[in-house]
Write a protein that binds this DNA or RNA. Structure first.
Lengths: 187, 187
DNA sequence: GTCTATACCGAGATAGAC
DNA sequence: GTCTATCTCGGTATAGAC
């Protein structure tokens, strides 16, 4: 039996993550989130003093999700397979990506434009992901160029999400992830 | 001697483009734009009935800028050189890109999240750019895979802008554009 | 065409009863 | 801890004098 407090709080976060992903952080109102989570507006402020605190929670939630994914990928037998799993994940989510862009990329972009403390927080999402990819290339034996290769791979994944989102076309993701899987296969 | 109307209107657009690029479209208020352009708030509504109309003008302005750039690149002697000029342009703007992301990409992302008519308008930016790149690959003699190659190149450029913006690091752009120039060199 | 004053509304945030 | 009512402010947009 979960605690009531935790329950409502996490329900708010889940709802906020979902709604802000679809419509943007600033354009999504606290009232929107509260309503969707079936919680009266005033009560939201019991869990979060300001809207920016909700933003913080959203970033942290995305970080958790990212780490969960990484743990899944880490199950694979070789670093090459781990990279393939990461790319495959992008492929599987192509419809979502075409509708709302990359959850990490679009969130970072928006928060960076705003500036302030949230921007710094969001940076962690990319450093985390880039670091993990770099680790894989190093483990493959490409320690000398691991950073370059990681940048190359993550750029392609991020970029194709931007294109797919901008044009509403998931096929672009399919096309590009297929190529990237072949590319990783060469290592 | 330019007409007063056109003068003020274009001053508003220029200012709007600059401010919204740095801080985002929705978070930039009409008052912000008016003040920066030295025009009283009320007067803005003589030129634009709604804020969304300003958004429309911003997209159109970006389209114009894009076409101007393409015309410059078209001056080059070969399609390969034209692609190199496009990549070089990204490299030269790396500091700007690290601070505010790609003007086209970030604008598209934000407007897509909002949905509505502006989202559709913004799509043109990508189709235009992707089409131009595709043309170059076709001219090189890669008509069979021109679309794939164009997606690959534009994805990398867009993606590295996202990464550079997210981490505030222009070096990523330098690293990736260098690689891309070498890559294009192979064709 | 230009500008001032202002209406209006929705957002974030607070007070305080229960 | 929970919820209702409300405050306040800043934003878009309008009215109307000049």
């Amino acid at each position: 039996m979960p605690k009531t407090k935790t329950d409502k709080r996490s329900r708010l976060i889940q709802t906020a993550v979902k709604l802000t992903y679809r419509h943007g952080f600033r354009t999504t109102s606290i009232a929107d989130i509260a309503e969707a989570a079936n919680i009266p507006v005033g009560n939201v402020y019991y869990y979060f003093k300001t809207k920016d605190e909700i933003g913080e929670a959203i970033v942290e939630q995305r970080l958790l999700e990212l780490r969960t994914l990484q743990e899944q990928w880490d199950q694979r037998g070789s670093p090459k397979e781990r990279l393939l799993a990461c790319i495959e994940n992008t492929f599987e989510n192509r419809d979502l990506l075409a509708r709302g862009g990359c959850p990490v990329g679009t969130l970072c972009s928006e928060l960076q434009k705003e500036g302030g403390p949230l921007a710094k927080k969001a940076t962690a999402l990319f450093t985390e992901l880039l670091g993990w990819i770099e680790d894989q290339f190093r483990a493959i034996g490409r320690g000398d160029t691991s950073r370059k290769l990681a940048t190359q791979l993550l750029s392609s994944l991020q970029g194709v999400s931007v294109l797919a989102h901008g044009s509403g076309n998931p096929e672009l993701v399919a096309m590009e992830t297929k190529r990237l899987k072949d590319w990783v296969g060469w290592f």
